[in-house]
Nucleic acid binder design. Sequence first.
DNA 1: ACTAAGTTTTAGACGCGTCTAATGCGGGGT
DNA 2: ACCCCGCATTAGACGCGTCTAAAACTTAGT
Lengths: 223, 223
Amino acid sequence: MLSDVMEDYLKATYVLQREGGPPVRTSDLAEYLGVTPPTVTSMLEKLADRELVEREKYKGVELSDEGETVALEILRHHRLLESYLAEHLDYDWSEVHEEADALEHHISEAFERRVANALGEPRVDPHGDPIPTEELAPLADDDTAALADIEEGETVTVARVSDRDDEHLAYLAERGIEPGAELDVVTVAPIDMVTVHVEGDEIHLPTAIAASIRVERETRATA
Amino acid sequence: MLSDVMEDYLKATYVLQREGGPPVRTSDLAEYLGVTPPTVTSMLEKLADRELVEREKYKGVELSDEGETVALEILRHHRLLESYLAEHLDYDWSEVHEEADALEHHISEAFERRVANALGEPRVDPHGDPIPTEELAPLADDDTAALADIEEGETVTVARVSDRDDEHLAYLAERGIEPGAELDVVTVAPIDMVTVHVEGDEIHLPTAIAASIRVERETRATA
DNA sequence: ACTAAGTTTTAGACGCGTCTAATGCGGGGT
DNA sequence: ACCCCGCATTAGACGCGTCTAAAACTTAGT
């Protein structure tokens, strides 16, 4: 039986781990989870004992296959819940994250199935993030770019907006920056600011925010 | 900030406490919650420190007004969740209890309101139990009787069926014993068994089960 | 009133997840 | 090649919720 907290560490490791990238470091997890580094070290030891992560001391951790499966299960719960709250309980797109975080550890298999069914087995959640399948197959690599890395003059489509901060989300949603929106990147200023046009309006975004908006460079056909 | 466990103790104290009755005893709570008596004692001390219960050593506890409010809040969550699962997520009446127990500590005010709204502000849950109002006003006294206490020959209407055991519930539901059903009490045998007629069928029930079925002696108009 | 049975509380321990303070490792700049 | 600084780990503590074993209280029966 995995504790809620262990599940949180696995989920955090998953989202912090870039495909094929370097191991996730202690301090990154500490910051992401809002705990101190020693706390992370001791939790990582337990996770390694249970073979949910592969750990190399002083280097960091990577999820084992089993650990990844657990992370995908929690992520599936999270994203199904977000979708359900938005679609059936009249939640606003930007206020769904916190509630899903609270519930994701506590729903049964039956609940998961019924919610997925009620939604028609969706593939992405309201933020644009992919929902793991019931079989928890690894998610396909991400071929989007961060808005912060786009050159001036390009036109891109918003693919996903990070769900980490409800406040930012509400701000962006109000201004029309949500999955599917078309953006013209007008200027990338050297003062940590990017300017875009969306639906005729001009929007200024600090780089930190622009980094959490994933975009597609050219329109492509999707199934 | 109350822990989940504290909320469980308060809820348990609420359901074990008969209106105006004697204080709830340590061993009753221990059995109900599946923990040992010393564990209950130490938790009760903490609850008394926070003035959520009034405790008299060696005698038992009663909920304070504040403790009762917390219990009613959890009960409201529980019963709204049961209702929602049954009505909107295709759960069977007899399998909602466990899921509601897992979720009841983790939903927000917003969630509670939206679920209540989606259901049309119901007054009772699928088991027939009353749902506390949003203002958490104390629930009216119960004027029902236990089926086990009914005399032979009487005809009664099922008001509520305890939601403590999903297995029993499924069994009873299959045989038509659910809120609103009319029962003729045929025999009350001295061997811990009562026999009733429901919808033409004859059903035999051990007294322990009959004790958990609350019935109304005569039909009365209800708003 | 005394005593025995049953219940409750006290005492002391443990695992979990967290912290702070102290120590240890390792990679980059001179 | 060395040293330093940043990051990670070890050491030791704490609160929570739980347990078992032992002591204390209550109460019912004689």
